[in-house]
Simulated scan of single mutants.
Amino acid sequence: MNIDRMEFISWMERIMSRLDMLDDHMEDMQKHRSSIDGEELLDNQDLLQMLKISNRSLQRYRSSGKLPYYTISGKLYYKLSDVHQFIRESFTAPPSRKKANK
């Protein structure tokens, strides 16, 4: 397949134009991300990936009341600040070991 320089440039311009459109679309999605009271909301998928836990573990944290959640139109959401608080409370540093004096 042999294409001339002008045709190649035209293809590249179309590709770049589409990439620019995708970039604009992604920026719009970031701006319109779900929030409540100005605070970002995370959904189940966000949390599963962030915490690297199973769906069942996430359900257990909700059921036990350790992780507050909100239901909006049948979908579960978590405030980012609540997730940070949950992490601080759940994953504390292990106690330091005392060295034996000899």
Rank of each mutant, 00 (worst) to 15 (best):
M1C: 02
N2L: 15
M6N: 14
F8E: 09
S10A: 10
S10W: 06
E13Q: 09
I15Q: 05
L19A: 14
L22Y: 11
L22Q: 12
L22P: 00
H25A: 11
Q30C: 08
Q30F: 10
K31I: 00
H32R: 11
H32V: 07
H32E: 11
S34R: 09
E39A: 10
N44Q: 13
L48R: 03
Q49W: 03
K52D: 14
I53C: 08
S57T: 14
S57G: 11
L58G: 01
L58I: 06
R60V: 15
R60L: 14
R60M: 14
Y61W: 08
R62D: 05
S63L: 11
S64V: 05
S64E: 08
G65V: 12
K66A: 07
P68S: 01
Y70H: 15
T71L: 15
I72R: 08
S73N: 13
G74V: 05
G74N: 04
K75A: 13
L76T: 15
Y78H: 12
Y78C: 06
L80G: 00
L80R: 08
L80V: 02
S81A: 09
D82I: 04
D82T: 02
V83K: 00
H84N: 13
S90Y: 00
T92Q: 13
T92G: 13
P95Y: 03
K98G: 01
K98I: 05
N101Y: 09
